[in-house]
Design a protein around this nucleic acid. Sequence first.
DNA 1: CCCTGTACTATGGTTTGCGTAATACGCAAT
DNA 2: ATTGCGTATTACGCAAACCATAGTACAGGG
Lengths: 109, 109
Amino acid sequence: MDGWVTQLRKGLLEFCILNLLRRGESYGYEIVRKLQPAEVLAVSESTVYPILSRLKQDGCLKVRDLPSPGGPPRRYFALTASGRARLAEMNAYWGELTAELDRLRKGEK
Amino acid sequence: MDGWVTQLRKGLLEFCILNLLRRGESYGYEIVRKLQPAEVLAVSESTVYPILSRLKQDGCLKVRDLPSPGGPPRRYFALTASGRARLAEMNAYWGELTAELDRLRKGEK
DNA sequence: CCCTGTACTATGGTTTGCGTAATACGCAAT
DNA sequence: ATTGCGTATTACGCAAACCATAGTACAGGG
């Protein structure tokens, strides 16, 4: 069960982070905190930071550094136009996927 | 988008196969066919067979071989008690996960 | 001076899906 | 008779994502 959860999260976390950033820019450490209370989605920094780097690399996010009140400067990430388009595609696919899975779980036909 | 779909499927396919077998035994080739029309879940044999092997290895499935009307003998897989328990846990976790994700996607608080 | 909380970076392992290819059986058509 | 197609399984190897672990760095309180 434990390993399965890890596998299930592949791709999903990227999806979560994009959805989180839809509301406005944020930085890695804060994103970890925002996902913490969810429990089923709780992750560590070593998971979030690589995802942010990849999304920026892919042109889905843009970055700007601002000083922090305590600690290294914060790297704020925000969605680009390309990122918003990507998120829209993902949301559409996710909708189909969950619909299909619900059909599988309840005893369809 | 394409690579993302591959990542999203990790763990999910195992979940789908267990749900499929809940209705009764089946064999690899047939499972591939049953998932085919779903589109969002369509996979090839090279994906399904390793999953079945692993599930059997983990004690979630039991196997019996029966002759095929054309081709090598079919390996029929069926859920064990342990498999049913595992599936129940997965279904519970999946419920929490989709609920949390829906909350993230709609602009909750 | 040490410890806690904040914030980011780097490395390596484990697992999974999937492309590719090989094997094997039966039946129909050329 | 041989070719091809649908059925059915097995084996090898790659790429990507999550995550544990560890390390760096700054500010403020005891």
